[in-house]
Simulated scan of single mutants.
Amino acid sequence: MRYRFYKKIECMMLPLSQSLLVSLAVPILCLSYTPSLVVGKITDVVLFGDSFTDQSRAHSIANGSVPGKDYQEVFPPIDFSADGGVQWPWYLGLYGNYRIWNYAVGGAVCSNNLTPLFDEPDVISGQEFWFVQDHIDGFNTSGQRLLLDPASFVVIQYIGTNDVGINSFVTFNESANVSLPDVADCQLDHLRAMHKLGVRNFILNSLIPLQITKLYSNSSAPTIYWPHVHDGNAWNNGMYNLVHSLNRMLIDGVKVLNAEWGGDGKVEWFDTYGFFEEMFNHPTQFFNGSIPANVTGHCHQCPDPDDFTQCGIGDCTLDERDSYMWWDELHPSEQTGRNLAAEMLKKIEGRSKF
């Protein structure tokens, strides 16, 4: 099913849904359009990232089944992703009629050499390897060939939350002699590596305003992700600075890459931070469940921060889920993901203000 009719109008309704599929209703945003990312018709979207994007790879790895060539598992129905349902790339594929190649892994960072965290397949090596496995013929030989038409697909990179988060920068646990510019360089170097493989269309996502999540709020109470009393004010202020600093470095890096490539490739900046602020500041335009829009609480409850087995007790109902911006203390909800997918479609088509 293709939902392409809204391409013809300048003011569009963003998709919302109570079900796994689609029912429509959301903000009317009238925007001034910018030139499209690409000249050719986009048919495929390739994604690198962490649990904000992962559809099932982290679960597959944890269950002892390392994703192989052309892996395309989407949760649910067998399980659910970190947003409590289906991740936003699935909706992007639906809205834009794209084939989705999602290499994101929950718990991932840009490079395990910098901020190892859980040692999940990182963007710059593990996830890049999967891309090579699926789309590069004769890798590292004189006959190396990209199997996708460079004009027909776009790479979206959306990483950094785990790099700056708990057990890393915000808790002062980053590796020795590693600084925030190293993390920014990692993201930019991955885009360079993909460019060498023949990729020409890129979207680099900023970090979201992590300081508005429960995990990084000014509350010092334990959470399921950090079951210890901590200095909430220090975390909140520190995360604000980390996010803004890394985003600024990445914005500057986008300019460097575009100048470096001299028109042979293009990186677009997607202001995920600004888009999340828009949802946070205008919740009734984006969230329409059976209860009032809620951008400060979260749907998924874990009553005892020391006991994962109790998680789910007191969750919001299925009818209420579309009212929440957040699934849990850190992860956006499925409804937030639908909103992101709709805006990302507009970005690909050159119609987004973000």
Rank of each mutant, 00 (worst) to 15 (best):
N339I: 09
G312L: 04
D134I: 06
D315W: 05
Q127M: 05
Q133S: 05
Y158P: 03
S23P: 04
T115E: 02
L180Y: 12
D50M: 04
W226I: 01
L180H: 05
D163K: 15
G138V: 09
P303E: 13
T43Y: 12
F139D: 01
E277A: 03
V243E: 00
H298C: 10
A342D: 08
F5S: 13
M325I: 01
Q335L: 01
I224Y: 00
E268F: 11
K196M: 08
V229K: 03
Y3W: 15
I28S: 08
W326S: 10
W101F: 08
K346Q: 06
G312M: 03
D271K: 11
S290G: 04
Y33H: 05
L16K: 03
L146D: 00
G165S: 15
A151Q: 13
K214D: 12
S175L: 02
I61W: 12
L250R: 12
A342N: 12
M279H: 13
F169S: 09
T336C: 04
N339D: 02
D137L: 13
A259D: 11
T336W: 01
G160I: 01
V45T: 12
D252L: 15
F153V: 01
P76W: 15
E349F: 11
S23V: 10
C299G: 09
L47V: 07
L94H: 06
E73N: 04
S36W: 11
R351G: 07
L47R: 01
H195Y: 14
F270K: 12
S220K: 08
W130Q: 14
E343L: 07
N167T: 06
A221H: 10
L207H: 07
C311T: 00
G238L: 04
G96S: 15
Q310F: 09
R4T: 05
D322Y: 03
H195R: 15
A82T: 10
T296W: 08
V46M: 03
G40Y: 03
L47G: 00
E128N: 06
F118P: 00
I251T: 07
M12T: 07
N167H: 15
Q72R: 15
L114D: 03
A82Y: 11
F48C: 02
A151M: 10
P222T: 14
L31G: 03
E278K: 13
V154H: 04
W269Q: 09
G265N: 02
S65N: 12
Q310L: 14
I124A: 03
N294D: 15
G96R: 07
N102P: 08
Y98Q: 11
R2I: 11
P89V: 04
